[in-house]
């Protein structure tokens, strides 16, 4: 059963009511079909009204939904013969990031992504999808391998952030992320990144430098979590909703700022309502992107990535004569 979200409550209530009426019709000998019909029409309007006017905070909730499809869910639907590969060859295997080789429409690719757990037990094993340095180093190892064997790299981004822990600092969390940003700038294969849930700061970006970056409609990407922003701005983490509204973290915002290339529509109410359907939508975007990028030479791929990031930023440039 799909867990309901706060903003969906009116829809759920109405659905319940319709269900009740239907039960009554079945049991008692009264005809309520006209009432049911009326309510169903109202339900349709209500759904449209709510799902087509999702506010940033609603999207944050969808992005964090416990049933929201994860990297491995999408890998199942999108790729054939996924072969998971483990370890950074230095310290260990971080299960907060998964990666491996697979076939996409018959073509070998490397797939990497943050991986949340489905339940508490798995979440503990995967550290709630918050990687340690060895996770980033595993990702880098697999990307270098992809570069060597000329395979496109596909990254799924879904993390609250890199893990803020003692051991992570001791093993060089900063360096691990920085190194990935640096190396991802130089790979000669297409890199396509898709934000499928939460894009939490440097921990997301650590596998997120691509020729193309897409976001699912209800995913978010931010420099700091809404809670973190709220606790800094108003010393009150419960103001997260306000922060979400002012920080420009939705797919539409990022598209407008020129950070992402496209928004991938979601099935109504969010990806968790139908993973299979959602995978088909992602599939069409991914296929098109890969075909387009396959026309670029190795040098052009590097060049295109460089130019993409070089352009990001909003600032004002005075005429040199205006400076005293």
């Amino acid at each position: 059963m799909v867990q309901e979200l706060e903003f969906e409550k009116p829809i759920i209530d109405l659905r319940k009511k319709i269900h009740e009426l239907k039960e009554i019709t079945k049991k008692a000998d009264v005809d309520l079909s006209s009432e049911i019909e009326k309510l169903e029409r109202r339900l349709q309007n209500l759904e449209e009204e709510i799902y087509f006017n999702l506010q940033p905070w609603d999207r944050v909730q969808i992005a964090r939904h416990p049933n929201r499809p994860t990297t491995l869910d999408y890998i199942d639907y999108l790729f054939e013969d996924f072969f998971e590969l483990h370890g950074d060859r230095v310290f260990g295997d971080d299960e907060a990031i998964v990666g491996g080789i697979a076939k996409y429409k018959g073509r070998p690719v490397t797939v990497i992504g943050h991986q949340r757990g489905k339940d508490t037990k798995e979440n503990i094993r995967r550290n709630f999808g918050m990687p340690h340095p060895e996770g980033y180093r595993k990702a880098l190892r697999l990307m270098k391998q992809a570069d060597k064997f000329n395979r496109p790299i596909i990254c799924f981004i879904d993390t609250k952030g890199a893990y803020p822990g003692k051991a992570a600092e001791e093993r060089g969390q900063s360096e691990a992320i920085a190194r990935n940003l640096f190396e991802m700038g130089g790979f000669t294969v297409p890199i396509i990144c898709i934000v499928i849930g939460e894009g939490g700061s440097g921990g997301a970006l650590g596998i997120g430098v691509g020729n193309r970056v897409y976001m699912l409609e209800n995913s978010i990407y931010s420099v700091i979590s809404p809670e973190g922003a709220a606790s800094i701005l108003w010393k009150d983490a419960t103001q997260a909703k306000r922060a979400a509204e002012s920080m420009k973290i939705t797919a539409t915002d990022l598209r407008e700022m020129g950070i992402i290339e496209g928004i991938i529509p979601e099935v109504r109410g969010g990806a968790h309502h139908n993973v299979e359907e959602q995978s088909k939508i992602i599939d069409s975007v991914l296929e098109k992107a890969l075909i387009e990028l396959s026309h670029l030479s190795q040098e052009e791929l590097i060049e295109q990535r460089y130019d993409k990031y070089a352009k990001i930023g909003v600032f004002f440039e005075k005429e040199p004569t205006e400076i005293k």
């Binding site: 920085a178 940003l181 640096f182 190396e183 991802m184 700038g185 130089g186 700061s201 440097g202 970006l205 997120g208 430098v209 990407y221 931010s222 420099v223 700091i224 922003a229 800094i232 920080m247 420009k248 973290i249 915002d253 990022l254 700022m257 950070i259 590097i302 990535r305 460089y306 990031y309 070089a310 990001i312 930023g313 909003v314």
Partner: peptide, 25 residues
């Protein structure tokens, strides 16, 4: 990162790192 510029600040991490990579190469 400068919080007042949101995710644009975050992307400066990528921008500067990619520039260093080219210079390094």
């Amino acid at each position: 990162a400068r919080m007042q510029e949101g995710v644009l600040s975050l992307m400066q991490m990528a921008k500067t790192s990619v520039a260093l990579k080219r210079f390094s190469d």
